[in-house]
């Protein structure tokens, strides 16, 4: 599983804004290579990406500011290549090579 051969990973860009970047090392844009398949062998989808981000990218211990009840916390918008994830199948969307996934929080103030 930790074997990162190029055909086993897909390169994607993940961005955080609206205050979420504070939870991800104050960095807005992350270029990542995520496993092509999840532990059960299914194609990686947004649900997998979210747990992957929590385990591998997020250093802040306050996971529940990003995830609640095993999904993205209500109030955080997810855009897949600029489209609302609700138009793309929400967390069932299978991630494609080169995808841009943006998480925007609406919860933080000005």
């Amino acid at each position: 599983m930790t074997d990162n051969k190029s055909e086993d990973v897909i390169p994607i860009t993940v961005e955080f804004s609206g205050g979420l970047e504070m939870l991800f090392s104050n960095k807005r844009k992350h270029n990542l290579s995520i496993p092509r398949n999840d532990d059960s062998g299914a194609a990686s989808n947004i649900a997998f990406l979210v747990s992957y981000l929590c385990q591998n990218v997020m250093k802040d211990p306050r996971k529940n500011l990003f995830v609640l009840d095993e999904t993205v916390r209500p109030g955080i918008l997810v855009l897949i290549n600029d489209a609302d994830w609700e138009l793309e199948g929400e967390d069932k969307y299978e991630i494609q090579r080169g995808d841009n996934i943006l998480f925007v929080s609406t919860l933080h103030g000005g």
């Binding site: 804004s17 609206g18 600029d82 103030g109 000005g110």
Partner: peptide, 19 residues
């Protein structure tokens, strides 16, 4: 609020989020 955030995003508005 969702549409406000989307409007800001799609119009590339310069805003600041903080706690």
């Amino acid at each position: 609020e969702k549409e406000i955030v989307l409007y800001a995003h799609h119009k590339n508005l310069d805003y600041f989020s903080t706690e």
